[in-house]
Design a protein around this nucleic acid. Structure first.
Lengths: 250, 250
DNA sequence: GCTGAACACTGGTCTGACCAGTTGACCAGC
DNA sequence: GCTGGTCAACTGGTCAGACCAGTGTTCAGC
């Protein structure tokens, strides 16, 4: 096993995670009041500033509502949480949530083609060379994780070219959820990354400045993995481990 | 002018905004080191915990990288910022950023139809009554802001029905950016909300459990506003105020 | 029954201290 | 000349305790 950077967890981090877990898993329901900061600090055995920092971060994520003088209450997560919460939802208690993983692929499939179309429309030819280079690098790599990183770089270039701030932010949020789970997600998208031809068609369409073709090509690239996972999840009702879903690109 | 709630700004809020502005507007570039917490506290005339809280929140938004012992550095925002930063980007220094507004409509157009299709596929008939009621309420309202809130509730129901966590989070993030700017965005989408018929077609398609039709209907609802704004922005190069873009639903 | 003052409790902020990790300069040893 | 150790001067991390400011409740007084 290769060495990996030691991960340090600060006290507020720890508090953040504990409260988050309590809120997400429903231990504290929406509208409920949290114990006071002083009480929490006492119970957790840390100082009030530490608790405070964690609570403020949760408030910024719109999970809590803090009112001076009043109690701090839990907001309706389902209605309030933003996309930046995705990493915490994708992997909870060390396990990948398959429903969330499926949802990520669905979102990718909804957004990717539009990004490709916009990139074609707004940048076109300028992308020919960089995209080709990125795909060459992808083609020359065997390691599964490295391949995924190259694919991410490819999409990163498209998102840049699409020149639409919201897609940029969405991509960043999705990547932030995606990257820590790269290894777990590998099998789901391995087939997709094997489809180098489909990727090249996409790159050509984008570089050719043809939005319609680019959109279709992107969909052809992204759809198989999405459907594979859906199929795997459907089959999951009877079995247990979704480790190796059928890889059957079309 | 009607009364409106006084808005309280805490000290950390203020620090947060100032540093954010500095980072977003490029005063501090990516990779650059911030002044130390003590120094910032001194310069801003506040205590270190206040500075600290603000910096931690910025770090959580992935805008800063904080390392104990080392300096706090600015991350590459373009690469790191998540969708939850959208509200701050949409309205900066009290002004709506038109490029970001356009981008929001683009994203809406990319995601909305898929949400509608998923809702049709996964919930279908169960939505008939709630959607009809929401549209009746929309029909019975004149006030522009209230109409938009009803439309948001309609989409909220669709997002729920789509049963896909990522779309839920995306919707929440977009709404968080959208709501504070409701009044400014009003003119852009007024025509859309006038298209009650299109909305009813969409509701019927969803309730009918027909994903394809639902997708098409959603696109028909959302596309006009997107194109109106694009046209208005294109025209903006010569004029100045994009206050009243042409309202021409198709 | 309503009003309004008093009080207890909440979060907001500050001060000052000390711990813990990083960095760079310096220096001994090979 | 390079390695590795040592140290001082930073940095952020954490704490304790204090006081300010806003909220909600209680209860005497009308």
């Amino acid at each position: 096993m290769p060495l990996h950077p030691v991960q340090r967890r600060s006290v507020p981090d720890e508090v953040f995670d504990q409260v988050l877990a309590e809120v997400v898993d429903g231990g504290w329901g929406a509208g409920e009041a949290l114990p006071s900061e002083r009480r929490l600090a006492e119970v957790l055995g840390v100082s009030r500033p530490a608790v405070r920092e964690a609570l403020q971060r949760l408030a910024q994520a719109r999970l809590l509502e803090v009112r001076q003088g009043g109690a701090t209450t839990v907001r309706d997560i389902r209605r309030a949480a933003g996309l930046d919460l995705l990493p915490q939802l994708l992997v909870r208690r060390g396990r990948l949530d398959p429903a969330v993983a499926r949802s990520i692929l669905e979102a990718r499939l909804a957004v990717g083609p539009t990004v490709a179309a916009l990139a074609a429309e707004r940048s076109g030819p300028a992308l020919a060379q960089p995209l080709a280079e990125l795909l060459d690098r992808l083609a020359g790599t065997q390691d599964a994780v490295a391949r995924q990183l190259h694919a991410l770089a490819f999409w990163d270039a498209l998102v840049d070219a699409a020149d639409s701030p919201v897609f940029r932010l969405m991509f960043n949020s999705l990547r932030a959820a995606y990257e820590p789970a790269l290894e777990a997600l590998g099998p789901l998208v391995a087939a997709e990354l094997g489809q180098l031809t489909a990727y090249r068609v996409l790159a050509d369409a984008v570089a050719g400045g043809d939005p319609g073709t680019a959109r279709a090509a992107a969909e052809r690239v992204l759809r198989p993995a999405t459907e594979n996972l859906s199929a795997a999840l459907a089959a999951l009702d009877s079995t247990d481990q979704p480790d190796s879903p059928t890889q059957e690109p079309r």
